[in-house]
Amino acid sequence: MKKLGLATALLLAMTGAQAYQFEVQGQSEYIDTTVNDKDFTGGIQATVYLKDVDASKGPLAEAAFLNQASNVSLAYNYGEVGSNGVDIIAHNFGAKAEAYLPTKFVPVYASAAYSHTILDSKNQNRTDDNGDRYALEVGALATKNFLVAVGYTSVADQTALDAFNVMSNGVAKAVAEAATIGEDQDALTARTKYVGNIDGTNMAVGFETGIVYGDDTAYQLKTDLYLNPQLSVGASYAESSFDATPDSAWGANVNYFITPAIAVGASYVNANSKAANDTQTVGVNAKFRF
């Protein structure tokens, strides 16, 4: 009977579940730079929502945002990178909490995040390193499904990446963002996010903008077209004024929910630079909800 119960629960999760409280996401990226085409990263993120998330309305990919679902997440990224005789193993850990609080006027948003990066050199060309970063953010949903937020980020070491930025936007953009802020620096951030249905269809659109102001300035734009609740295609663009990172990067992605509980996706980023290495990344990802 126990085996039957477990099998039934798994079958429901894989076929028709329209509400979930846990999400596990995994991803991997292949990195091709001007001087090295053998780098790669891998990552995993686990999120628990304080209440069940209703996935029956709108794009499945944005169910948590549409439900204003408060949550706690843990993330881990692993990477093997190097060039010109330098070989580094990178470990990146992160913890994050997001809260949506109703008020008499508009829903209020707040988040807090911490990431820690460890660089383990495999030769004598560079010493081992590690660093921390902290981030706080507050905002509000000015109108339905439209979030405006501002924040403060403290990067104690330039090697400290945002573990959740790696998972959501890829390693190329996450590295450029950390370098733009600068070593042992504070930064101000601002972002917006909107998801809305297209009247008369089962399609929807999503837009995101973001800016980081530290030693230098970076901004990014993202848009997604949800052809139906299961399938989406998207494009992104990012730019940084820091000379030692790619000047600009554009990307494309596609994501598909095989069932309401299982999704797969792929991404591509092309980052061009005048002073640093050009970089291309190809990524794959998967999500499981239950």
Rank of each mutant, 00 (worst) to 15 (best):
N169H: 14
A160G: 06
G210Y: 01
I211T: 02
I181Y: 02
G170M: 06
A163N: 07
S154N: 14
M203H: 06
N165H: 13
V166S: 04
E177R: 10
N169Y: 15
D199V: 09
I198P: 02
A174I: 12
Y152Q: 04
Y152P: 03
D157L: 01
T153K: 11
A178T: 08
Q185E: 15
A187S: 09
A156R: 13
V205G: 07
A149R: 07
V205C: 01
V166P: 05
G210K: 00
F207R: 01
A176T: 15
M167Q: 14
A172K: 05
I211H: 03
Q185H: 15
V195K: 01
A172L: 14
S168A: 11
T209E: 03
N202W: 01
I198Y: 04
T159K: 12
I211N: 02
A174L: 13
M203I: 06
A174Q: 09
G196N: 08
T201P: 05
A204N: 03
A187V: 04
T192V: 14
K193P: 07
A160L: 10
A179C: 04
V171A: 08
F207A: 02
Q158S: 14
A160C: 07
E183L: 02
E183S: 14
D162V: 11
V148R: 00
F164Y: 10
A187M: 01
I198Q: 01
K173N: 14
A172T: 15
D199H: 06
V150F: 09
G182E: 09
L161Y: 13
V175I: 12
A156W: 10
A187D: 04
G170V: 13
Y152S: 02
A149D: 05
T153A: 04
V150T: 11
L188R: 10
N169G: 11
T209S: 02
T201A: 05
A179G: 13
I181W: 12
A149P: 08
V205L: 08
A156C: 06
D186K: 12
A172S: 15
A149V: 07
S168C: 07
I198V: 08
A160T: 04
G151K: 01
V150E: 07
G170Q: 14
A204T: 02
N165M: 10
Q158V: 13
D199M: 11
V166C: 06
T209L: 00
T159Y: 11
N202E: 14
L147P: 02
A172M: 08
T209N: 00
D184P: 04
E183Y: 10
N169Q: 15
G210V: 00
S168E: 15
I181A: 11
I211V: 08
A178C: 09
V155S: 04
A187R: 01
A204C: 04
A163V: 09
D184A: 08
V175T: 13
Y194E: 10
A178P: 03
Q185D: 14
A172D: 12
G170Y: 09
L161S: 09
G206F: 00
S154T: 10
A174C: 13
